[in-house]
Each structure stands twice: as structure tokens, then as C-alpha cells.
């Protein structure tokens, strides 16, 4: 050792200096670090006076306060992640909704407000993540209801809701009670065309493409989609006319004091034609009390579910209305 130091004294000096600098650097970098603590071999979360709350105690306390209400959401998110892939399309749709709502709530703080809500009320990192899971839930529900529509649509349902698929053509009046000469002319043109040989119930979609002034549906042949007796998003005169039609029938021109004149067609009253419609799925979810939970549990079983905590298992099953032995 002596010989080594004698022969390499300069290197040794440099090494000692380097180590000293490193030691000081390490100290300086970390002198303000938060120190940890453990008691009885367990990490401490916080202490006050002579009382220490371990991380395990903190977990138990948080769980007791609101763990149960949050565990169901965690379970739901795990099921949704299995049932619906996070595609680029879904992410883009979630972003679109995020942007839309951020604009809507701009006076409240926009995106930061929404992110705070998503975190505080749902435990998500941000609003976009909340929207993503909402969209996954929609996808999962739509597929399930569509695949199991026969379980829900019986004679009682049909009698109660009179479900159908509707298309329409709109001749738009700005102020329907006092139409302009131009508006009346467009209406007459459409009415004359409809009674001509060119158009009929069979090619109603062509008629709607050619004449409908509703930009949201004209290009798709006037297709509105699922309508039933509980539909509230349409004006009363429209819904009333729609519900009176048999499959394949076209109505007379219907005056709407809000929009102008409609011509409606009942495309179908067959389950096969509306089973995948968004509004039909919504109807099932709202009308059948436990439908959403049934869908969730069905998806969980399909993916394969196992519990390692009896208390959590019992609570989740209770919340989903599932028999404990299921």
C-alpha cells in the first residue's frame, strides 16, 4: 500500500479530492430531500406529536372513508379496458368531446375546471380520460344490447314504446307561420316531385338527398334512426306522425311551427334494423333498471374475473346486483 501511494501519490491526491467533492455534491443535492421514516418495519405516512400513521394505516383510513365508492369504478374501468380497446379513433373522439366541453365551460375555467372535476369526483387524471371511459362504456353497452336485444324487446316493450326506424325530408322555413315566397316555392317543388313518377316510398332516400334541407341527415338519405313513444328530442308533431306509420309507409306532409314541413317514412319496425341504434341502446339502459350492471358483470365474466379480497368482492357484487355465488 505504502509503495502504491508513494508511486501514485498524485493520483491518490486527485482521487481524495474527487471523492471529497463528490461527497459534498451528494450532500448538497440531497440536503433538502424529504426524509422518510419507518416504525415497526412499516413506512410512515405522517406523524404528529407521538403518533405515527403508517402507509398501511393511511390506506385503511382512506378505504374506510371512500374506498368502497371508488372500488366499483376501478372495477368498471378494468372491465372496460378489457372489453374495448383504446384505439386512435376512440382517443380522437374523447379529445373532441374534451375540446367541446372545455369551450362550453370556458367561463368556469374551461379545461382546468373539467380536469379538476374529473379528478375530484371520479379520481381520473384528467377529463379526457373520463371521456375515454365514458365512450368505452357506450361501445360496450351498444355491443351487448345489440347482441342481446331479444332479451329486452318483447311484446310488452313493443306495445309500450312502438319502436321504429324513421327517415325524413325537411323543407325548412325560417319563420314557419309567415313563410316567404321562396320557401313556399321550394315546398311546392318538393311536393310536386314527390307526387311525380320519379319518387316513391322505395326510393325515399333519393328524394331526401335531392330535396331535404336538413344538412345533418340529407346526405344519408334523410335517415334519423330509432324513434319511439318516449323520444323527447323531437317536436311533438313529428313524433306523432312517425308513430302512426306502418313499416314502409310515408306520411303526408307534416307542418311544424318550429321548422317548416316534414315528410316522414317509417323505414322499419323490425328489431333487426334498430338493435344497434344508439337511441335504442339508451332506451334499454334507462328502461331496464339493472341493465348497465348486467352488462358490466357479463363483460367481466367474459374476460375472466377473480377476486383476492372477500370484502371487495362482496361489495362489488352487491353494487352490481350479482348473486354472491355467481
Amino acid at each position: 500500500m505504502k509503495k502504491f501511494l508513494k508511486e501514485n501519490w498524485f493520483v491518490a491526491v486527485i482521487a481524495v479530492f474527487f471523492v471529497a467533492i463528490s461527497l459534498y455534491f451528494a450532500y448538497d443535492q440531497h440536503k433538502d430531500d424529504l426524509p422518510g421514516k419507518s416504525v415497526g418495519g412499516k413506512d410512515v405516512a405522517f406523524g404528529i406529536g407521538d403518533q405515527y400513521t403508517t402507509m398501511d394505516d393511511l390506506y385503511d383510513g382512506l378505504y374506510k372513508n371512500y374506498g368502497k365508492s371508488m372500488i366499483v369504478q376501478q372495477f368498471s374501468d378494468a372491465v372496460l379496458d378489457n372489453a374495448v380497446a383504446t384505439t386512435d379513433e376512440l382517443l380522437a373522439e374523447a379529445q373532441n368531446y374534451t375540446d367541446y366541453y372545455a369551450e362550453m365551460y370556458s367561463s368556469y375555467g374551461g379545461l382546468s375546471y373539467l380536469n379538476q372535476i374529473a379528478k375530484s369526483y371520479y379520481g381520473y387524471d384528467d377529463f379526457k380520460t373520463y371521456m375515454l371511459y365514458s365512450l368505452k362504456s357506450r361501445e360496450m353497452s351498444t355491443k351487448y344490447v345489440s347482441d342481446h336485444a331479444e332479451d329486452y324487446v318483447n311484446d310488452e316493450f313493443i306495445k309500450k314504446y312502438n319502436p321504429r326506424v324513421i327517415s325524413y325530408c325537411l323543407i325548412k322555413f325560417e319563420k314557419p307561420d309567415t313563410p316567404t315566397a321562396d320557401e313556399l316555392e321550394r315546398l311546392k317543388k318538393a311536393q310536386d316531385a314527390w307526387t311525380s313518377e320519379k319518387y316513391s316510398a322505395e326510393n325515399f332516400a333519393d328524394f331526401a338527398k335531392d330535396f331535404s334541407e336538413d344538412a345533418s341527415t340529407a346526405s344519408s338519405g334523410g335517415k334519423l334512426g330509432y324513434v319511439d313513444s318516449a323520444t323527447t328530442s323531437l317536436v311533438e308533431e313529428f313524433t306523432k306522425a312517425a308513430l302512426q306509420l306502418e313499416a314502409g309507409q310515408v306520411s303526408d306532409w307534416v307542418f311544424s311551427k318550429d321548422y317548416g314541413y316534414f315528410l316522414l317514412k317509417c323505414d322499419s319496425t323490425s328489431l333487426a334494423d334498430y338493435r344497434s341504434e344508439t337511441d335504442f341502446v339508451s332506451r334499454i339502459l334507462s328502461d331496464f333498471e339493472n341493465a348497465a350492471n348486467e352488462i358490466m358483470w357479463s363483460a367481466a365474466k367474459e374476460a375472466g374475473v377473480s377476486f383476492n379480497d372477500a370484502d371487495i368482492e362482496a361489495y362489488i357484487k352487491s353494487e352490481l346486483g350479482v348473486e354472491s355465488e355467481d
Partner: peptide
């Protein structure tokens, strides 16, 4: 900075798929 850990943090509560 200290990062406290649960004594059984890796315990699986439930698994879906």
C-alpha cells in the same frame, strides 16, 4: 425524496382478464 410504501402493496385486489 422519501416515498412511503404499503407493506403489501403488490397484493392483487382483483383481476379482470
Amino acid at each position: 425524496d422519501a416515498s412511503g410504501k404499503l407493506s403489501d402493496g403488490n397484493k392483487v385486489l382483483f383481476q379482470v382478464g
